[in-house]
């Protein structure tokens, strides 16, 4: 299987704080990865390096065949291929749902308005929110906003999707609708890296679960083995913490 994302020997600092320590991660095309770990372990930082929202000190990142470096061209190429969904949705408040979805396709992919709108309506239907296209983000619930954010990313027809704690800011009753959308996306073969503590989701769709602590990948395994037989003490402690409440 061809690899979609390759990270080798990634080192990242925030000032003196060593945020990522020798991260090596290869994600195959169509693979679904769930990243978990305590807060401050570096999981968000890791996925934010993939689309260059964070810069690294050393190491190599190749995404869909594009080697990331500081040149705007390389960054552009990678960002065109990778969609991202954020914890806080980050929809643009002054634009309608539809305008949110067509902005980047028109600017970046140079689609005409009618092409972009057709694509946007297709993906809004896909996340079951087609009838809200003319509304503004503030008029939607959190779960609806996050589904729009997913649709907005999909409108760029990305080859891989990054999810940075997509359900953490949601009221409990809205978590399911967002997870269902993500599951259906996974079923369609999208390459996905999800930072999440939704272990049900991990069991359901992940090919691999990766546990991080202190900027390092501590353990990775298929979900069944990861949950039933965690190898490291830190993984067991973490799973004990989060599963205690479920």
């Amino acid at each position: 299987m061809a690899s979609m994302i390759e990270m080798q020997h990634i080192e990242k600092y925030y000032g003196a704080f060593h945020a990522l320590k020798n991260i090596n991660l290869t994600v195959a095309k169509g693979e679904k990865i769930v990243l978990c770990g305590p807060s401050g372990s570096g999981k968000s930082t890791l996925i934010r390096c993939i689309n260059h929202l964070e810069t690294i000190k050393s190491g190599e990142i190749v995404v869909a065949g594009h080697r990331l470096n500081d040149s705007q061209k390389a960054v552009d190429a990678v960002r065109r291929e990778v969609g991202m969904v954020f914890q806080q949705f980050n929809l643009f408040p002054h634009k309608t749902v539809l305008e949110n979805c067509i902005l980047a396709p028109m600017r970046v992919r140079k689609l005409s308005r009618s092409e972009a709108e057709a694509t946007a309506r297709k993906y809004l239907e896909r996340v079951r929110i087609g009838d809200q296209a003319e509304k503004y983000p503030a008029q939607l619930s959190g779960g609806q906003q996050q589904r729009v954010a997913i649709a907005r990313a999909l409108c760029m027809e990305p080859k891989a999707m990054l999810f940075d704690e997509p359900t953490s800011a949601l009221d409990p009753e809205m978590v399911k609708e967002v997870l269902d959308t993500m599951v259906s996306l996974a079923r369609d073969g999208m390459t996905m890296i999800c930072v999440t503590h939704e272990m049900g989701f991990a069991r359901q769709v992940a090919d691999r679960v990766i546990f991080m602590a202190d900027g390092q990948i501590v353990e990775e395994n298929d979900p069944e083995s990861f949950f039933s037989a965690p190898k490291h003490e830190r993984t067991r402690a973490f799973l004990g913490e989060i599963l205690a409440h479920h």
Binding site: D76, R79, N90, F92, A104, R107, V108, A149, M156
Partner: peptide
């Protein structure tokens, strides 16, 4: 997050400022 969302979509810094 507004700026980051724009950048992640592939928009350039000046477009993010002007449009978002």
């Amino acid at each position: 997050g507004q700026t980051e969302a724009g950048l992640a979509l592939g928009l350039h810094k000046h477009e993010v400022f002007r449009l978002i």
